[in-house]
Design a binder for these strands. Structure first.
Lengths: 250, 250
DNA sequence: GAGGCTAGTGACAGCCGCTGACAATTGACA
DNA sequence: TGTCAATTGTCAGCGGCTGTCACTAGCCTC
């Protein structure tokens, strides 16, 4: 069920095309997975593949960000890296897939962070700490692939491009389902009987989306800004659900 | 800002193509709108247009539902109604637009319902009553266009078709923004200063999405089922946010 | 270190969604 | 009935995406 984005390109003994029909992903340490002997040897072939993929990704993001997503053609991207259009599609399932690649990376980071929260924390607290924590650590992972600055601009692009936003939101929902199961597990509940895990996660996800949107729309694109927005908004969940709102809070 | 789905086809003195580049929508009684003298004369031309649109819509939904969204081509839909492909695109912005047409209809019903809630109700209560109420009244409006049974099946299709679900979720987000503004207005707050309206709506929307998904995945597709699911899940928001979950609730 | 194996790539060909442009038809209205 | 404007069909074409097939280049074995 869990899919972790493969940043290293160490796809082990891959069987089919570059990344078996796009995605550049590999199943890994999820709910259950066979133990893998870490990453022993890169291999020239793999390195080359990885370089091509990163080059494509970077070219794509730069073009998207500079001239807009819709106005960028796959031919352009492929051309910028000097490979055939067909090759692009061997690395990415489509334009969207390339545009959202880094999102997937951050998502898997977040999920991992949730997994590592100590079990005594209340669900919402665990989620809260997990996000705040991942905001701090995700940077490095991204920098391995493309400059973070490019990632920031890509994020804003996604928020403002209907086609991308749509797919991004769908992904979010999938992740919510996954996290709901995680939470249910933590609490020893059956996700199909007890509504609370899914509700808690939906609430949390809703707030995350609002903050993400506001962050993307605002001026300050620093990590500090998103951290603070997140914390503030989470703090307001209680008041927002109160019976009567005084005209007071904030 | 508000767009109401035009079921009647009474587009007044339309200026351009059938529905000016798709959507079949018309601006109407929203935050502010000029008073219109109701709907005086259908006019043969209008009626014909409306018939064509409904025929296309129905053919599209039936094909989608019976053979799948992706496997249905626009040519097929147009062919089923015996019009040119080009004509289809004059009535709908695309395949997606046709598939989600009824969703838009229900959405505008919901928004209208929210507008009509008495101002003394607390935000979440107003939202709750608005949904439950619209579940009861939306049926008729839909039946005017296609059999409700077809709509139900379409709903399930949307939930299970990634491309459609994505767009549906994006729409939902837009609607949340609109409702957040409505709520802020009700409460006399500034939506850009006070986080509560957006948060409350996000929470509400999150729960709605969960219930919608579960409903679509379940067996009982009756209105009664969705009503009950909705009510139950909304009741669980409080408990889900509690610090400690006893293994009790439900 | 030569040869075989196979992953990765390029070059086509082709389907499908969608759009612009223009001509032909048809309802609306004087 | 004739003019005007709204609808529609036809044609041409772009761009995303996929299947196929031959070719090149790492990789592995003997």
């Amino acid at each position: 069920m869990t899919e972790t984005v493969d940043t290293t390109g160490t796809a082990g003994t891959s069987t089919a095309a570059p990344a078996s029909a796009a995605h550049g992903t590999e199943p890994s340490a999820g709910t259950a997975a066979a133990a893998e002997p870490a990453a022993p040897r890169p291999g020239l072939r793999e390195r080359k593949k990885r370089r091509t993929r990163n080059a494509l990704l970077r070219a794509a993001l730069e073009l998207f960000v500079s001239q807009g997503y819709e106005r960028t053609t796959v031919d352009e991207i492929a051309g910028a890296v000097d490979v055939s259009q067909r090759t692009f599609f061997r690395y990415f399932a489509g334009k969207e897939d390339a545009a959202l690649f880094l999102q997937r990376l951050t998502e898997s980071h977040f999920i991992a962070a949730v997994r590592e929260r100590p079990p005594h924390e209340a669900p919402l607290e665990a989620l809260r700490r997990a996000v705040l924590e991942s905001w701090d650590t995700i940077g490095e992972a991204i920098e391995e692939v493309v400059p973070i600055e490019l990632h920031m601009r890509t994020y804003r692009l996604i928020e403002s491009t209907p086609a991308l936003l749509a797919v991004h939101l769908r992904r979010s929902e999938e992740i919510e389902e996954e996290i709901a199961r995680l939470i249910a597990e933590r609490e020893g509940l059956d996700v199909d009987t007890d509504p609370r895990p899914r509700i808690a996660v939906a609430v949390f996800g809703g707030v995350m989306r609002v903050t993400g949107r506001l962050w993307g729309a605002g001026e300050d694109t620093s990590v500090a800004a998103i951290r603070e927005l997140t914390a503030t908004y989470l703090d307001h969940v209680g008041p927002a659900l109160a019976e009567k709102w005084g005209t007071a809070p904030r």
